[in-house]
Design a protein around this nucleic acid. Structure first.
Length: 718
DNA sequence: GTTTCATGTCATTGT
DNA sequence: ACACAATGACATGAA
């Protein structure tokens, strides 16, 4: 019953305090229980879904179809193998785990999630170009921590600038500049990073593209492809044509929101696959395959995050899961005859070969589609739009909360360090062994309190026994004195002199925050009071006169002390109150006391004990509040950290998509029909088949599949 | 005179 | 049954 009551009362108190501390708007509970799942979904779901990308199947593709019998270009083949591994590396991202281990009482140890976490996930192969990209970006991210949030805010569509009182003007300016870069150039920082590593990227992308090309299944005539695919020494013009529009960021600026829709669409695409058997379906590598284990990320596997979606804003975005979706398997895989009515009468211009439909349309911004987007079908509704809105709203609201709470990430991280370093500080660790650090509950205090009564008889020392010492050193002396004086002696109640020793400023930290924390959790104040009682205040001594001193003492006496004196109780109230029962009874037996005296003594004892109990109770209450306050701060820190991680993850996704775009372009651009002419993106699109092969199919088919797939996720969401 | 805060006290309940 | 701790509610005094 006690525990039940305790839970009830403390729960109510905690809830109330939380509401008041956080503010009703914040509604941490809602955030953690309702908002978090989406957050977790966004962060984890996509990651695990993404791991199921059919890129994995390139491996099988390579083994199964990679080399066409007609292919004689071994050089290309080996290159393709190498590139293929890089392509595969695409899906090995890391995402920071996001966990809220507990709330209110327990806090997840710092550092278990953020910061280094992304690196602890499935690491990208060191040789992979992907890592080349992500590595520098991580570095940048660390250095940009302060302003990253501002930019991210913009990325997330937040309208309110992250201005807080703690942001310096430089911070704000930086944020602003970055933001404008994003918008004006249609490219984020990632893009610049990307182009900065253009050499690596080019190589990587080219090789990856070739590898992909090697693994394409072309029922009609694979040899034509292998012959057509240029060798390693192919003119750089091709790459330039393919990549420069992406990398230079010179294309028209994209709508930010559109970009985010793209991002979100990818995320949803992944989310759709999270709990499906997509991995089994699409990834048919043998179970023991080390690569397969690499690819099969656990749901909470951190994913690296360096995706730029700045170039991914296409109307056809929704179609891009043609490439990834498990549904592809259900595609009526086109027969060779259907697949290859190859009549790419289009010009050889690479730009013109890229239509806006299907995969190409997906990956290419409209600006890149050149003149060949005439066949682009009606724009299909983005099946991910809903999620996008949700996620964006979620993000925005979270950000707003963070801002409104004056809770910017910079502060948060600083706080994090501070709190980590001195978590125990405040809580008066030096003052009392049972300080706040151990006062997670009130049990410690009660235990110490109970110990106090047992040690109450220890009256030899005048020093304050923190362990609950209720012993009064002067008890015996006082008793002697009192008895000598006629046994009416009394002691001013300590509380009047030095109430709450814990309030002694000298014992407290200078920090205002700690002012009310540095108290003795044993909740026994008597000893210090004793000192005060034994030694009248200096002011009284200076005045010298015994009358004044007596007056002062009188004034300091409690009512019970006055009563005791009036009733001529032969011992001190301290003894009455603090002696153990046995000693107390023994003491009573020593004197011949009237019934009135005995009654008063019992009342005094009762009230005295109750008074201390009340003090303890109040301190416990205060402790509870302080603990809750600290918990709230912890939660706020956690929230800020999670937001940071989420933002980083989104950024990573953006980059990843950009890379996929590049690879797609590369691959598609290298495909050649029997006549050695490139395929028209407006007429053909690349698709992944369920068995891991990559198909070149007519756009009409691809569109049908796209529509079919779009319906399912929507239904699923409803 | 009113408000707020700290403290004391009482009544009650649970251990 | 008793002692006591805990605690809500109220009273009181001081700032």
């Amino acid at each position: 019953m006690l525990s039940l009551k305790k839970y009830l009362t403390e729960g109510l108190l905690q809830f109330t305090i939380l509401l008041s501390l956080i503010g009703v708007r914040v509604d941490v509970d809602t955030y953690l229980t309702s908002q978090l799942p989406p957050l977790r979904e966004i962060i984890l779901g996509p990651s695990s879904a993404y791991t199921q990308t059919q890129f994995h199947n390139l491996r099988n593709t390579l083994d199964g179809y990679g080399i066409h019998p007609k292919s004689i270009d071994l050089d290309n083949y080996f290159t393709a193998r190498r590139l293929l591994s890089q392509v595969r590396a695409l899906d090995r991202f890391q995402v920071p785990t996001t966990e809220v281990n507990a709330w209110l009482v327990h806090r997840d140890p710092e550092g278990s999630v953020s910061g280094s976490q992304p690196n602890s996930g499935l690491a990208l192969e060191s040789s992979s170009g992907l890592q080349d990209v992500t590595g520098p970006d991580n570095g940048v991210r660390e250095s940009e921590t302060e302003q990253g949030f501002g930019e991210d805010l913009e990325d997330l569509g937040a309208v309110a600038p992250p201005v807080s009182g703690d942001l310096t003007k430089e911070d704000i300016d930086l944020i602003d500049i970055l933001w404008r870069q994003d918008i004006d150039l249609g490219a984020g920082r990632e893009v610049f990073d990307y182009s900065h590593h253009g050499g690596e990227q080019d190589t990587w992308a080219r090789e990856g593209a070739e590898a992909l090309a090697r693994n394409l299944l072309f029922p009609a005539d694979i040899s034509s492809i292998t012959e057509a695919v240029p060798s390693e020494s192919e003119p750089p013009a091709l790459q330039n044509n393919l990549l420069s529009p992406l990398l230079t960021g010179t294309e028209s600026p994209f709508d930010l929101e559109q970009q985010w829709q793209d991002l979100m669409s990818i995320m949803e695409m992944q989310a759709m696959e999270v709990n499906t058997s997509a991995s089994e379906i699409l990834y048919n590598a043998p179970p023991g395959d080390p690569l397969s284990t690499n690819y099969s990320l656990a749901p909470n596997t951190p994913i690296n995050q360096n995706v730029s979606l700045h170039q991914a804003s296409l109307g056809g975005c929704s179609q891009d899961f043609l490439l990834f979706s498990p549904e592809v398997e259900s595609l009526p895989v086109a027969s060779s005859s259907t697949l290859l009515p190859l009549a790419p009468s289009n010009s050889t211009s690479l730009n013109s070969t890229f239509g806006s439909t299907n995969l190409t349309g997906l990956f290419f911004p409209p600006q890149l589609n050149g003149t060949a987007n005439d066949t682009a079908g009606p724009e299909l509704p983005d099946p991910l739009g809903g999620l996008l809105d949700e996620a964006m709203l979620d993000e925005i609201s979270l950000m707003d909360l963070a801002i409104e709470e004056g809770f910017n990430p910079v502060q948060a991280s600083q706080l994090e360090e501070e709190f980590d370093s001195d978590s125990g500080l405040s809580l008066d660790s030096s003052h009392s062994p049972s300080s706040l650090s151990s006062s997670e509950g009130s049990s410690s205090s009660s235990s110490s309190s109970s110990s106090s009564s047992s040690s109450a008889s220890s009256s030899a020392s005048s020093s304050f026994s923190e362990e609950g010492a209720v012993g009064y050193s002067s008890d015996s002396e006082t008793l002697d004195l009192e008895e000598a004086e006629g046994a009416v002696g009394y002691q001013p109640e300590y509380s009047k002199f030095c109430r709450m020793s814990y309030q002694d400023p000298a014992q407290l930290s200078c920090l205002p925050y700690l002012e009310h924390v540095g108290h003795n959790h044993t909740y026994n104040m008597a000893p210090s009071a004793l000192d005060s009682a034994d030694l009248p205040p200096p002011s009284a001594l200076k005045k010298g006169s015994k009358e004044k001193q007596a007056d002062f003492l009188d004034k300091q006496m409690s009512r019970d002390e006055h009563r005791a004196r009036a009733m001529k109780i032969p011992f001190t109230n301290d003894k009455i109150i603090n002696l153990p029962v046995e000693e107390f009874n023994e003491l009573l037996s020593k004197y011949q006391l009237s019934e009135a005296q005995l009654s008063l003594i019992r009342d005094i004892r009762r009230r005295g004990k109750n008074k201390m109990a009340a003090q303890n109770c109040r301190k416990r209450k205060l402790d509870t509040i302080l603990n809750l306050e600290r918990d709230v701060e912890d939660l706020q820190r956690d929230k800020a950290r999670l937001l940071r991680e989420k933002v980083e993850f989104l950024r990573s996704l953006r980059q990843m998509k950009q890379k996929v775009q590049s690879l797609y372009q590369e691959v598609f651009g290298r495909l050649r029909d029997e006549n050695g002419r490139p395929y028209s993106p407006s007429q053909y699109a690349l698709q992944y088949a369920g068995d891991g092969s990559v198909l070149l199919i007519p756009r009409t088919m691809a569109d049908q599949q796209t529509r079919r797939q779009e319906r399912k996720p929507k239904d699923r969401r409803k």
